[in-house]
């Protein structure tokens, strides 16, 4: 209903009436912001890029999480590792993704692997830092109590510290995921697939209808991931709900 109304509004705009160049490509021209006819007929072509985009994001974030989490656990024990790890992940985070893609290209080629490596490297800093903050925020008294009831260091880490750090860890995961969804649009520069393909269209960025659809899907994916991760946090930290109630 709403979309039909919007379409109707669009149709009274000046310069709207155009000849269809073909049945499959109505109003390919650039003088309209959004072409509903085209969108209706071509929405199917976004299915594969969307799936590719999801793959890029999920693989990159999981990879980044695995590495960052392992680094955080390592630095948790060996404090001398903290300054170099923070600086190292910070430097990697600062390098713009597009630059990173092409720094990797001579080694990994024009592929989704190149995109995945760059995107996962980008998540390291956020996840590493949040995990460290979460672990640092665990009150010393709680750790003392755990030690008092006879828990080993390993038990304290997995049964006390990590569960209490979960909100911060998942907060980092949310930031990393949402950023990665947005950045994954750039994967198209190295033939990495994803929604960026429908925006960039081989350098033709004049078709706003496709830019809006692909950009809109990307924002929607980010939103869905954000909500899902928030739900996951609620699920794995039931004690926080008890406190809140």
């Amino acid at each position: 209903m709403t979309s039909a109304m919007l379409a109707a509004v669009g149709e009274v705009g000046e310069g709207f009436i155009q000849e269809r160049t073909s049945d499959t490509l109505p109003c390919q021209a650039t003088d309209k912001l959004f072409c509903f006819d085209w969108a209706r007929e071509n929405i199917g072509r976004y299915e594969e890029p969307t799936i590719q985009h999801l793959e890029l994001v999920v693989i990159s974030v999981l990879l980044g999480f695995a590495v960052a989490f392992a680094l955080a656990l390592l630095a948790h024990r060996r404090t001398w590792l903290r300054p170099p790890l923070l600086a190292g992940t910070g430097i990697l985070y600062t390098i713009p993704s597009v630059a990173f893609f092409f720094l990797l290209e001579p080694f990994t080629g024009r592929s989704s692997e190149t995109a995945i490596i760059a995107l996962s490297v980008y998540t390291l800093q956020i996840i590493y830092r949040n995990t460290m903050v979460g672990l640092a925020n665990v009150p010393a008294s709680v750790k003392d109590a755990a030690r008092g009831i006879g828990q080993t260091d390993r038990q304290i880490l997995w049964k006390v510290e990590l569960p209490l750090a979960t909100p911060e860890i998942i907060a980092g995961l949310r930031i990393a995921t949402v950023s990665t969804v947005a950045l994954a649009t750039l994967a198209t520069f190295v033939n990495g697939g994803g929604l960026g393909e429908q925006i960039f269209r081989g350098g033709n960025i004049d078709f706003t209808t496709s830019i809006i659809i692909a950009g809109g899907i990307a924002i929607l994916i980010a939103l869905v991931f954000d909500v899902l991760l928030l739900g996951l946090q609620r699920l794995v930290t039931p004690w926080r709900r008890a406190v809140a109630a």
Partner: peptide
């Protein structure tokens, strides 16, 4: 953070 840079530009 959710704004896709490429789409924006």
């Amino acid at each position: 953070r959710a704004i896709p840079e490429l789409a924006l530009i």
